[in-house]
């Protein structure tokens, strides 16, 4: 692993009480993260998003989170006060969600949201905050930052909104970024632009990145390491470059079942889910 450990997760569990009983969304997930890009891959219901939310402290209040260890830079995230947790969130740990439409405030201009984010975590003057916000918008390759600064979220395209979201999340200079399906709502060509920006900024700033996605191929082309989740558990951790030699049948099945240009297979191989994978 490259350098120091940024995040340590040991035996993370998230349970939800429902009408029909207790649902275990995450059942004992362990991994550690340095200043690297880690992908968490799984299908719907695998618990990948809940893992990200639990680290972030955004689990719904009725759910219960427990872990032997959940430490960020040596800070035990489960024992600190909600206030301390809040100040970590957005400042040292940031999160990008799937659809910028839902995560940006619709009645505030993009620029003001970025400025507000900065000023809640740092004591800076209004003018300086504005300067830094504009610089950040420039850094996410928005061509005319001054114009976009004064736009409302509904006035920009999906790709632009997601870049603004990244700008807002990066303005405080976080050490850890959690990106939950950051590009799934975007068109394929825009998707790559956004990923390029994210990649560059993460590399430049030496941040740790957790990239949560359903798309194994995309994640493996973007991340250094991949954690594959199934039914709330980690079934395999593997270097992205060695994905082709994945051992677990689920990982192999996921890789195989997608149609690929130039590899004709009729019918496509399907996943034969074994109950012991979830055990």
């Amino acid at each position: 692993m490259n350098g120091d450990t940024l995040l340590e997760v040991d035996d993370l569990r998230v349970t939800f009480p429902t009408r029909t009983g207790i649902v275990q969304a995450v059942r004992g997930v362990s991994f550690s993260l340095g200043r690297e890009r880690l992908g968490i891959v799984g299908e719907s219901g695998s618990g990948k998003s809940q893992t990200g939310r639990a680290i972030m402290g955004l689990t719904p209040p009725q759910a219960e989170v427990s872990a032997k260890k959940l430490a960020f830079n040596g800070i035990d995230l489960l024992s600190i006060s909600p206030r301390q947790r809040r100040s970590l969130r957005g400042n040292r740990i940031a999160m990008i969600l799937q659809d910028p439409k839902y995560s940006l405030d619709p009645v505030m201009t993009i620029g003001r949201q970025i400025v507000e984010t900065l000023r809640t975590h740092e004591k800076v003057s209004r003018a300086e905050a504005r300067e830094r916000a504009l610089a950040m918008l420039q850094a996410v390759q928005i061509r005319d930052p001054a114009r976009v600064f004064d736009l409302y979220p509904h006035e920009v395209s999906g790709g632009m909104g997601q870049r603004a979201m990244i700008a807002m999340m990066l303005i405080t200079g976080p050490e850890l970024m959690i990106a939950d399906e950051p590009t799934s709502a975007l068109d394929v060509t825009v998707q790559l632009d956004v990923l390029k920006i994210l990649d560059k900024l993460v590399a430049e700033r030496g941040m740790g990145l957790i990239f949560i996605s359903h798309d194994l191929r995309l994640v493996s082309s973007f991340c250094d390491r991949v954690v594959v989740m199934y039914a709330g558990k980690v079934v395999e951790q593997i270097k992205a470059s060695e994905l082709r030699d994945a051992q677990h049948p689920y990982t192999r099945g996921l890789l195989n079942c997608m149609p690929r240009i130039g590899f004709e297979r009729h019918p496509l191989p399907v996943l034969d889910r074994k109950p012991e994978w979830a055990a």
Binding site: E43, D215, G253, L254, C257, M258, V270, L271, R273
Partner: peptide, 8 residues
């Protein structure tokens, strides 16, 4: 749909 379901 999920990738594996998509294949089916």
């Amino acid at each position: 749909l999920d990738a594996s379901v998509q294949a089916e």
